[in-house]
Structures are given as C-alpha cells and as structure tokens.
C-alpha cells in the first residue's frame, strides 16, 4: 500500500500554519509526529489533499517550567518528556504515560500534542494531563483561547478544537505540596503495547497525614473518550486516605465504567470493569505514596 497523493506544506511559523489550516479547512491534515497520520493514510482511512507539517516550527517545541507552570509545546516529542528529569520529579504520572507510549522509536517521533489531539481512548498522554488539571492553548488566525483538557474530548477522534485551530501549547500546573499522582496502563505485553485500559489518579492532601482535599481520577478505554470518575472523586474528598477508601473508590470507578466489550475490542467489558477498579486502587496508592513524600 502506498500513501495517497497530497500537497505538502511546511509552514515556518504558527501564524502561517494557522492561515493554512483556515484556508484548506477539512481538506488538510496536520502532520505533527506522523505516527498516527501515516498509518491512517496508508490504510486509506483518510486521504487529505494537503498535509501541513508542523514539527519544524520552533515555537511548538518549547518545553519549560516557569512560575509553577509546565509548558509543553505541541510538537515536543514524547521522548523528550520521558527524558526530562524535572517532569519526572514533579509530574511523575505524565512521565509514566510518556514512557508507556509505544516503543522508543515511536516516542522519538510522536508528539505530546499529537497524542492529545488524535483523541483516542487508548492514548497514554491525556489521562495524566487530565489528572493534573492541564489546559490547552488553541490558536487560530484571529487569536488564541485556552480550554481545560476536561472539556476537550468530544468523542473518539473528535475534540472541541475548531477546523481552523491548532493546538500550540499544553499548560500543566505544578501539583501543590502533599499531592501525588499515578498512571498505570495495561497492555498484553510487557511494554510498548497498545492499551487495554489506562487509569490516572491524582490526590492532594490537607497537609501531611491530612484528609484528601482534591482528587481527580481519569480512565481510558471504557468509553469513547477518556472520562473523569466524579463519583469516585467525590467519595474521596474529605476522607482520610486508607486502603479501604481506595477500594471503595475503585468500586465506584468500576460502577461508573461503561466499556463496550465486543469480540473485536481488546478485552471484554467484564474484564475492563474489573481492571478499572484494580488500576484505580493501584494508581491511588501510587498517588498517596507520592503525596506523603512531598
């Protein structure tokens, strides 16, 4: 199989890219890391008339931590996030998600932005971003807007991003003291695998040994998009963290999950539900361990 024919564009700036996106509309596809796009084109799932390649735009490759905010340019590769000691220290769950994404060869091309925008429920980057309360900067010719990642995914493969918009940066606030997060993905093989399921949890404690004052639990592959588990979060807030509490949160997550198990999906609904619980409990324990140490 070969790739469909298209015109290739490599804008030098975000502004130029925005103009192209606005001009071509639905006929264009953005090439960030290409790891998804190339497959979709090869398999004839899409055949864009225009491919707009953005990994050459410097502005989209910033990776910085300043005044309590981690800014990740959309075209920062997953490999760069894996290698960043600062991210590993403060945003461990994000780092775990990045490490879990594909093989090292894929990570060298795949971008953080691409993993978010492609909006696949098995994606490794969105769960922890949601758990950390990240927001996304979307830009078009007329200006930019910031949306919470919680409101970004509208369905499998679809997002709140307009056809004339480009994701430029991801803003991840620094987690407060006495908080922690965890990410676990479950595949068939030891690593480099496509997920059967993934869960990320975040909790913030009211001081060392205190009650939970904030919690976010995100699960993937149990619905068309990554989803927050409000029931489990509510149940945690105001309580002292214990194993039993985490079990109850896991139970709540299990009840909230509505996976569509079919012969063709990677696992049955029953298994996925049980795993939502298991991974919720595990990630909460990870989050708690981290919160106690910080």
């Amino acid at each position: 199989m070969s790739l469909p024919e298209f015109d290739f564009h490599a804008p030098g700036t975000v502004e130029e890219a925005c103009r192209m996106v606005a001009g071509f509309g639905a006929k264009a596809k953005i090439f960030a890391g290409g790891t998804d796009l190339m497959l979709d084109m090869r398999r004839n799932r899409i055949s864009p008339e225009h491919v707009i390649s953005i990994p050459g735009i410097e502005e989209l490759k910033t990776l910085e931590i300043a005044s309590g905010m981690l800014t990740i340019g959309a075209c920062v590769t997953v490999a760069r996030v894996v290698k960043s000691k600062e991210i590993a220290a403060k945003w461990g769950a994000l780092c775990a998600g990045a490490k879990a994404l594909g093989s090292c060869l894929v990570r060298n091309l795949a971008t953080i932005g691409g993993n978010v925008v492609s909006a696949r429920p098995a994606a490794d980057i969105p769960p922890s971003l949601m758990a950390y309360g990240a927001s996304l900067v979307l830009k078009k010719t007329s200006g930019e807007r910031v949306v919470s990642i919680n409101d970004f995914f509208t369905g499998t493969g679809s997002t709140a991003m307009g056809p004339d918009e480009i994701l430029t940066r991801i803003l991840v606030p620094e987690p407060p003291p006495h908080s922690g997060a965890g990410y676990v993905n479950l595949g068939i093989r030891n690593a480099c695998d496509i997920n059967i399921l993934n869960v990320s949890s975040y909790i913030a404690l009211d001081g060392p040994g205190g009650a939970i004052k904030d919690a976010r639990i995100v699960m993937g592959c149990v619905a068309p998009t990554h989803v927050r588990v409000n029931s489990a979060e509510k149940l945690l807030i105001g309580e002292k963290p214990t194993d039993a509490l985490f079990q109850r949160a896991g139970e709540a997550a299990l009840n909230a999950a509505t996976p569509r198990g079919s012969a063709y999906s990677r696992a049955s609904a029953e298994y996925k539900k049980d795993m939502v619980k298991e991974l919720t409990v595990r990630t909460l324990a990870m989050a708690y361990r981290e919160a106690m140490g910080r």
Binding site: A10, G34, L105, V106, N108, L109
Partner: peptide, 19 residues
C-alpha cells in the same frame, strides 16, 4: 527501517522524504 535522523533513531517509514 530505522535510521538516525539528526541524531535520533526513527522509523523511516513514518517520515516523509520531504521532511
């Protein structure tokens, strides 16, 4: 199809020649 592109190993089937 691994090649080293600007110092980084990548799958060259996922990269367009123009890039």
């Amino acid at each position: 199809c691994t090649v080293i592109l600007d110092g980084t190993p990548v799958s060259s089937c996922l990269v367009l020649a123009v890039q």
